[in-house]
Design a protein around this nucleic acid. Structure first.
Length: 201
DNA sequence: AATTTGCCCAACCGCAGACTC
DNA sequence: GGAGTCTGCGGTTGGGCAAAT
């Protein structure tokens, strides 16, 4: 196995690991307030933290950043996560970009601990009850095919496919203003017309 | 009361693209 | 253009806690 680039590992000897202390948080926040959330290696050094830059970035992004929403995921948010995941697959950062105040890590954790189980359960139930006409079956197959094509594009980054088009262009939070949960929910209600549209392409 | 089990979530790891020199 | 470094992402791990035994 090839060695990872130096920057991807916290190689500093005796670097602090594990949970952050309140004091470390404070130091990090102070430095970021002055210098901004960039050049994480130097942020770590300036803050006098015995942490690698990567660790500082993660702490900032997932915990210290302003406007982080803490606490339970609402039903509306959950519904949005489900819909977005259906469209985007495991592209947590894109999904998080549409949920104000939520982090990719939080959504990923929520998905893994709650929603993936819910979905498996639902699938099991559906398998028991679903009796479809041939016509309906064909439609489902077609939909699956389209979703697969999207997800192929989402499984690797920077793939020039429809999936990537949808994920990167339509859901790129950096290229748009903030959207409300209501707006996203309404947008996603257009799922079916989306599928039809894509299928015709 | 002590131990085991299962869950949640913060943090770490490795990879890949972007950036810099 | 290429090597080295930085940044961001998704997958995974492990510590802490509560519930169950």
């Amino acid at each position: 196995m090839p060695m990872a680039p130096l920057s991807s590992r916290c190689t500093k000897k005796e670097a602090n690991r594990g949970a952050w202390t309140a004091e470390e948080d404070q130091k990090l926040a102070q430095v970021i307030e002055i210098h901004g959330p960039k050049r994480w290696k130097s942020v770590a050094a300036k803050a006098g933290l015995n942490r690698c830059g990567k660790s500082c970035r993660l702490r900032w992004m997932n915990y210290l950043r302003p406007n982080i929403k803490r606490g339970n995921i609402s039903d509306q948010e959950e519904d949005l996560i489900l819909r977005l995941h259906k469209l985007l697959g495991n592209r947590w950062s894109l999904i998080a970009g549409r949920l104000p105040g939520r982090t990719d890590n939080e959504i990923k954790n929520y998905w893994n601990s709650h929603l993936s189980k819910k979905i498996k359960l639902k699938e099991k139930q559906n398998r028991g009850f679903m009796v479809q006409s041939e016509h309906e079956k064909t439609n489902v197959k077609e939909m699956d095919h389209i979703v697969d094509r999207r997800e192929e594009g989402t499984s690797t980054r920077n793939v020039d496919s429809q999936g990537s088009f949808i994920g990167d262009d339509l859901f790129n939070s950096s290229s748009e203003g903030p959207l409300t949960l209501e707006w996203m929910s309404k947008f996603l209600e257009m799922d079916e017309s989306w599928f039809e549209l894509l299928h015709d392409m």
